[in-house]
Design a protein around this nucleic acid. Structure first.
Length: 931
RNA sequence: GCUGAAGUGGUGGAACUGGUAGACACGCAGGACUUAAAAUCCUGUUCGCCUUAAAGCGAGUGCGGGUUCGAUUCCCGCCUUCAGUACCA
């Protein structure tokens, strides 16, 4: 039989499904290995050829680990809450659950035909109430916890309440809001319920807070910082403005330092770790309090260069700073108000674009340098951000370029503070070298010496202390949307309370429309009779997209039928699987999903629900698959109108043309299929062409893969034409997994030919299955063991593309050797099985093995003896330039090699009578003659 | 601006710890089989020079330097592309 990939692939896919071949047990004597893919949002467009790239890689890895004797967990599911389904619901009135259901069915069908070894009994969907019950449950745990800095971990809120009632607020070191009260135990006990709850809210790890949020009017919701790109929403590109709103937040900042430290122990790509470090943005410095010249108020600043404090010639506070109005003197009032009005008008985008122009206004008031009492003018300027630090900076023009520009612009003094600073008349010099001058008590000291002196002095004066500042903000945890997890909270007297645990899940109610209410409340406000215990108002916002994906890998640890109703994940399962050994996904989740997941994981660990500090031990980023668009060039006539004449790419410069996207599916190797082009659109029906070399060649450009660019390639089409094994191999063959690259179907024939060639090794001329029982030759064994070693090395360093080439080389060699020996082919089948599971399953069965067992065979043992050579064709180079090869025995030592080489006639000819100055011999590698 | 990644034939890419640059594949050209096409197979294919040919010579991994017997690989400077981030005090 010929290689009938269609029959063969569907046969095995059916077999695997019916026999639950990839169902995994939570008890096994084998070591565990957990391979996870970032789960997809099931969009209406279905999978394009770029989506499965990472899944194929992880599947190869999972299958390889199985062959290596591991018990492998490789699950898949859907992040099925999200905006697109809701936007679609708004437009069509169709319930997002229905759309989502349909989209998942499409995804499932597409995934199934690629031949993944997923254990589907463990599937999760974040929008399934049985799943989001536990997302809500985790929210409740967060609400019922606070962060104890003494223990450096989260604890139950009961501990805090107990402490308050016994000792008051004394001795509590917690991550909390700024405005916590100081009280005695008696005072606490006399607080009303309301006062107590209000106070506790300042400590809870999820809490309600008035915060400035990114409000996206077009989407009708709040967005997290990582959902806003360049001042517009990441999804849809709508404008985003700053707005103050009461919002649920997550106290992720409590974990900032642990999130930072954890990066050192996980095996992730460095750029990704770097992104997380930047996002967390830890800076070490000091807070310094500048008392005001008049009144009792003071301005607190954060600085990383407290050593420059004697170079401070003015303070700058953010226009939103709370002291602005009290600082503004009557004479300056108009100027300040004009400036504030002006900055308010500027959008985020303008502010960014405008980074170079200096602007600001003087308040008219002065502060005092706490160390020497110097009078310092206080200015406002929008380069100081209200949200970072204290919203105030001490300006040191001689050491900071921004301050320098400001000082020059407004004619403020520039004070030199280090003798090593040079040319501060022309720009700031941020050096830490040299010794201090003009600096009072640190004059003559170095940077290293000055810091402790200053910190001590500031503490003594109660005017400052060493401080660590983070850029990361607490995460806003609410969206004014319908299609998300309801927050399990109701309100009594305006205060939030959790619903009873036994009332979980709080199921998403039905609404008549998926739009905000007339009074501007979120869509949940439309739900009829939706009240807790028929009485209390529920929270109307829903959880953000990242909620459901922040713990899902634990849900996979048991199959659907084993999932006990009363736990997030059963303890024995967590103890067995522990963490994810390999996580594959895109780097676009660097500061969102991957940070939030680590945060929730650490929290769950603090409370003792999970075991590992870090959830994802090793992570690989797969590169993005870009689209590769094709263009035709329409000739424009003298009137500037488009004609129906199209000119081939190579000749387009001779005409006035406009480029038009053409569907890549009617183009092959950049040559246009004219018939299909004419049929593709009515206006093209009588198109005429100007050819080059008798063909119409299309132009090419790399762009995002999208429908509007007609460059989407659907895996279904590839599978229909070449089969899933070819698709899998080709996606890997395209290049290194981690590199972004455009999809180009042009080379796929080569991979397909390879599989046919492999098939033919097992068959005679008449395509009858035929293998020989003869003993293999040395050459055949060498070829086999080369591939055994190569694939093993490649997979372990995630270099899947090089394995595919090596498979081709191996099959080419075996074809050349006319090898059809069972002892070679059977091992080759196992080595190839992770990459091409269908054809290998078939060949494995033809070889007489029990059906469906190749996945659990043993990876062949590599024997280095078969690769030992007795001879080597040494490259002989002259001054490092390769000239010729000379065959020599590998037993020869350096001196013998040198003699042999110098006696060779051809070498003598190259030397042209000269004697080499030096002869470099590297045994088994190279000979280099230096003349 | 800062941080990170990358730059190799017509194309995707290989060369893993400094040791034969261009493996493997696509495309292209030529050939075999065929009435023809498809499929399959064979040969060639970095560029330039020289040559009827065999062979030979020279250049060559973004650019300019350096270290080394030897550099795609290490070091210094620069250019370009992509990604992240953006007045972070």
């Amino acid at each position: 039989m010929d290689y009938q990939f269609r029959e063969l692939e569907s046969k095995w896919q059916q077999y695997w499904a019916e026999n639950q071949t990839y169902k995994v047990d939570n008890t096994s004597s084998k070591p565990k290995y957990y391979v996870l893919d970032m789960f997809p949002y099931p969009s209406g467009a279905g999978l394009h050829v770029g989506h499965p790239l990472g899944y194929i890689a992880s599947d190869i890895f999972a299958r390889y680990k199985r062959l290596k004797g591991y018990n492998v967990l490789h699950p898949m599911g859907y992040d099925s809450f999200g905006l697109p389904a809701e936007q679609y619901a708004i437009q069509t009135g169709q319930h997002p659950a229905l759309t989502t259901e349909q989209n998942i069915a499409t995804y499932r069908r597409q995934l199934d035909q690629i031949g993944f070894s997923f254990d589907w009994s463990r599937e999760v969907r974040t929008s399934d109430p049985a799943y989001y019950k536990w997302t809500q449950w985790i929210f409740m745990q967060l609400f019922n916890s606070w962060y104890n800095l003494e223990e450096d971990k989260a604890e139950r809120i009961e501990n805090l309440i107990q402490h308050f009632s016994l000792k008051g607020s004394e001795g509590i070191r917690a991550v909390s809001d700024e405005d916590t009260l100081s009280f005695s135990a008696d005072e606490w006990n006399q607080f009303s319920e309301r006062q107590q709850q209000e106070e506790l809210l300042k400590y809870r790890l999820t809490f309600l807070k008035e915060s400035t949020v990114n409000w996206c009017a077009a989407l009708g919701t709040v967005l997290a910082n990582d959902e806003v790109k360049d001042g517009v929403s990441e999804r849809g590109g709508y404008p985003v403005e700053q707005k103050k709103m009461m919002q649920w937040s997550m106290r992720i900042t409590a974990y900032a330092d642990r999130l930072l430290q954890g990066l050192d122990i996980i095996d992730w790509p460095d750029p990704l770790k770097e992104m997380q470090r930047n996002w967390i943005g830890k800076s070490t410095g000091a807070s310094v309090i500048f008392p005001l010249e008049k009144g009792d108020d003071a301005i607190e600043v954060f600085t990383t260069r407290v050593d420059t404090i004697f170079g401070v010639s003015f303070l700058v506070i953010a226009p939103e700073h709370e002291l602005v109005s009290s600082l503004t003197t009557p004479q300056q009032k108009e100027e300040i108000e004009t400036y504030i009005a002006q900055t308010k008008k500027k959008s985020e985008l303008d502010r960014m674009a405008d980074a170079k122009t200096v602007s600001g206004a003087f308040t008219g008031s002065y502060a005092l340098n706490p160390l020497n009492g110097t009078k310092i003018p206080v200015w406002i300027a929008d380069y100081v951000l209200a949200g970072y630090g204290t919203g105030a900076v001490m300006a040191v023009p001689s050491g900071d370029q921004r301050d320098w520009l400001f000082a020059k612009h407004f004619n403020l003094p520039i004070i030199q503070i280090l003798d090593a600073q040079k040319d501060i008349e022309h720009e700031a010099d941020a050096t830490k070298e040299g010794r201090y001058i003009n600096s009072d008590l640190i004059n003559g000291l170095t940077y290293q010496e000055a810091i402790p002196v200053l910190i001590e002095k500031l503490e003594q004066l109660k005017a400052g202390k060493a401080k660590i500042q983070y850029r990361m903000r607490d995460a806003i945890f609410g969206r004014q949307r319908y299609w998300g997890e309801p927050v399990p909270v109701y309100f009594k007297d305006g205060l939030p309370y959790l619903i009873d645990e036994q009332d979980l899940p709080l199921v998403l109610p039905e609404v008549d429309k998926y739009l905000p209410t007339e009074s501007g409340e979120p869509p949940l406000g439309r739900a009829k009779d939706w009240k807790y215990k028929g009485e209390y108002e529920y929270e109307l916002s829903t959880m953000p997209g990242w909620a459901g994906s922040s713990w899902y890998w634990y849900r996979y640890m048991t199959s659907a039928d084993e999932r006990a109703e009363n736990v997030m994940a059963p303890q024995p399962a967590i103890e067995y699987w522990k963490d994810v050994d390999l996580y594959i996904g895109g780097s676009e989740h660097a500061t969102g999903h991957l940070l939030y997941s680590r945060f929730w994981n650490k929290f769950l660990k603090d409370l003792g629900y999970v075991i590992e500090d870090e959830p994802f031990k090793k992570l690989i980023n797969q590169g993005m698959i870009q689209g590769r668009s094709n263009f035709v060039y329409r000739v424009i006539d003298e009137q500037g109108k488009g004609t129906n004449v199209f000119v081939s790419n190579g000749l387009k410069d001779q005409y006035k043309v406009s480029a038009v996207h053409v569907d890549v599916n009617i183009v092959e190797n950049d040559v246009l299929d004219l018939e299909r082009f004419r049929k593709s659109r009515e206006e093209y029906a009588d198109a005429e062409f100007i050819f080059e070399n008798g063909k119409y060649v299309c132009g090419v450009e790399v762009e995002k893969m999208s429908k509007s660019k007609f460059n989407v390639v659907n895996p279904d089409d590839i599978i229909e034409r070449y089969g899933a094994d070819t698709l899998r191999l080709y996606e890997m063959f395209l290049g290194p997994l981690e590199q972004s690259k455009p999809w180009n179907t042009n080379g796929i024939e080569g991979v397909f030919k390879f599989l046919r060639k492999l098939w033919r090794l097992f068959h005679d001329e008449q395509l009858n299955f035929k293998v020989s029982e003869e003993e293999p030759t040395k050459a055949e064994l060498k070829s086999l063991h080369k591939i055994i070693l190569k694939v093993q090395e490649d997979i372990e360093r995630f270099s899947f593309n090089t394995s595919v080439s090596s498979f081709m080389i191996c099959v080419n060699e075996l074809t050349e050797l006319k090898c059809n020996k069972r002892k070679i082919l059977q091992d080759l089948v196992v080595v190839l099985a992770p990459y091409a599971p269908h054809i290998t399953e078939e060949l494995w069965t033809l070889l007489g093995n029990p059906a469906g067992t190749v996945s659990f065979a043993s990876y062949p043992k590599f024997n280095p003896d078969y690769l030992v050579e007795d001879e080597f064709a040494y490259p002989i180079s002259l001054n490092g330039k390769m000239k010729m090869n000379l065959n020599m025995s590998l037993t020869l030592e350096a001196l013998e090699i040198e003699r042999f080489v110098l006696e060779n006639e051809d070498v003598k000819r190259y030397l042209d009578g000269k004697t080499p100055k030096k002869v470099i011999v590297v045994k088994g590698k190279i000979v280099n003659l230096v003349v």
